[in-house]
């Protein structure tokens, strides 16, 4: 027998009970990486001649724009692309609120929650959107999605347009001075 064996008594095996955010959802289809996407990625990497790692955030943005959210496969792909460990990317996805690890609605409504907008009726506006879009209770990350997956409504922190409160974003677009009437118009516009 070899004496220098690393042995762990069998009774000490710990059942993996804890689940991390991002550790679940094993059924993500492996995404097909389109050629033009990879070309775009390669271009962005050239913007960081000193350290490829700097391209982490841009690549996460590109991924999310393309695939809607950053799946575990996305994390692994980006890590491999930048010659990093996947944990280096997971650290970012969970730190920066704009990145999602799960799909949100097709129409994503972000209502500013911070003081000036709150003074201007941001909470009431968010409630209005939640009712109008028939989204349920927010999840652990504050995101509420309608059962059909069409809408998601969430609070975000200061969007830097405090003089025209309340402000919202729908997908990538900014809207200021949003009244309930304007909210209705916007919903119609995005439905169309």
């Amino acid at each position: 027998m070899s004496i220098n064996r690393v042995t762990v008594p069998a009774t000490q095996n710990i059942p993996p009970e804890a689940v991390y955010p991002g550790a679940h959802d094993s059924h993500h289809p492996a995404p097909v990486i389109p050629k033009d996407f990879e070309a775009e990625v390669d271009t962005v990497i050239t913007h960081y001649p000193v350290s490829k790692r700097s391209a982490s955030l841009p690549l996460l943005h590109l991924w999310q724009e393309k695939f809607g959210y950053v799946s575990p496969e996305g994390i692994e792909w980006i890590a491999a692309k930048l010659e990093l460990q996947p944990i280096n990317i997971l650290e970012l996805v969970t730190f920066y609120p704009m990145f999602r690890q799960h799909p949100a609605g097709k129409i994503q409504i972000k209502v500013c929650r911070t003081l000036s907008c709150a003074l201007g009726g941001g909470y009431a506006l968010c409630d209005y959107f939640r009712k109008k879009c028939n989204v349920g209770e927010p999840d652990a990350h504050g995101l509420a999605t309608s059962p059909d997956g069409k809408y998601s409504v969430e609070f975000v922190e200061c969007l830097a347009a405090c003089g025209t409160a309340p402000v919202i974003m729908i997908n990538d677009d900014f809207y200021e001075d949003v009244s309930n009437v304007k909210a209705d118009e916007l919903l119609l516009k995005y439905q169309g």
């Binding site: 955030l57 920066y96 609120p97 990145f99």
Partner: peptide, 9 residues
């Protein structure tokens, strides 16, 4: 180059 943040104050 333009570098985008991702929502962290």
């Amino acid at each position: 180059y333009v570098h985008r943040g991702a929502g962290a104050y």
